[in-house]
Nucleic acid binder design. Structure first.
Lengths: 132, 132, 132, 132
DNA sequence: GTGGTCTAGACCACC
DNA sequence: GTGGTCTAGACCACG
């Protein structure tokens, strides 16, 4: 479902968050779908439930999922993108760092754009279904 | 010179490393140029010298700069890009995360490519001389 | 009748309790009026009957409604306000928290008082008959 | 500093969050001031450091405090109120619930407004110093 | 069954 | 020294 690399410098809970968001974009998880419970997911990934809990909470704060008391956690049906200046700057910084790293790895500009374009096309897009 | 955000979650030493590499790509720092000493740099950025030291060490490890004993630290004249599968995967993960975030901020694919292209064009590129 | 948000962090049973009390203050429910049975209410709100049951029990504990065996549940005809130091402190804490949040949202004092006054005026008041 | 009621239904970490924000409004904590470290605060309140940590994280997410790596956590110098429709609705719900409770405790409208006004006046306001 | 909170104790990176 | 993450295990409220 989600592959976790415990040796990564990215915290495990963040890997779960990223993995879920990526899975949703790719259509692996559908809006309204129930997520595995915290305990189930923890068993599947052989993690402590608290770690999964932290990830689910973060996803909820981002409004990517909603939790319904006593029933579980579900993919949000109507995600509303909300542009935020701080987040935009953060995003740019992340891209800038990645671009610098790529250039230092030997990519030239065209290869770099091609790399990014390829990665973008792996994602279905949030609303692509609605619009077709 | 380099703008540091002490409140950022990115470690300060890493901000220095990124900032230096970005500055080199943009041509602000020229190959062969001498860097300020650790102490000078620490004063300029009002940082702990240990932090600057760590950044210089990291830059040297990446062969972006070279230290000559008793003379100082200099921008490498002939940086040799070194493609490494681990680093490539890491790079892809970074891009993927950034792309997911961008899509969740409301970017569509074209806007995203445009954003990245714009950021890439801010950099002069390591190999731009070769091609002109 | 009562709008329930299952995704809210406020327990559903508490939302029913609050909603009923608000409806009574607003005159939507009249003293002596019969409430829908637990099962009816559960169907209307598409909730688990246990949840509605719990809300009714709580309303009865607060003497807002009375249950007559075999007849049903009714809005109390003579609700007796009961000032209790513990409850008063709790109330103050709730207000204090809300006020702090409002100030942090950017409200100034006058706007805040206006907001509260407006909300108060939406309620008819328990004792409005006495004073008119 | 902050008084914690472990018997309260309000989670301890939330009590810390509320208490800090209230303290800042009242001027007990000044912008730029360093907060006790997570461990210190945990000792002071005889709580587990994780609980304090959670509170500090929440305060940082709300931009009420900033953390500087290796140095500690500090009251934000320039808090920028950010109105948000969701938060506004949440605020109104909180007030509505409190108002309903107050009316059921026997408050009439004037007493209620007086209560709120009194509580508001206990707070200095976020920018009141700047404007005088 | 579900998620939410808390404690205890450990390890790590950063400054 | 600082905060950040993770595990283990417990208890609770909710539906």
């Amino acid at each position: 479902m989600i592959d976790i690399d415990v040796t990564s410098s990215t915290p495990i809970y963040a890997q779960i968050v990223n993995g879920m968001k990526e899975g949703i974009l790719k259509g692996i998880f559908q809006p309204g779908e129930k997520l595995p419970s915290v305990r189930e997911m923890a068993k599947m990934l052989t993690l402590n439930p608290n770690t999964v809990q932290k990830a689910y909470k973060e996803l909820e704060r981002q409004k990517v999922v909603v939790t319904i008391q006593g029933r579980g956690t579900f993919i949000s049906k109507e995600y509303q993108p909300k542009m935020d200046e701080d987040k935009l700057n953060e995003l740019k910084e992340t891209f800038k760092k990645a671009i610098v790293d790529a250039l230092y790895l030997g990519f030239d500009k065209e290869e770099l754009i091609a790399l990014v374009t390829g990665l973008v096309n792996e994602m279905e897009g949030l609303n692509s279904d609605d619009k077709n």
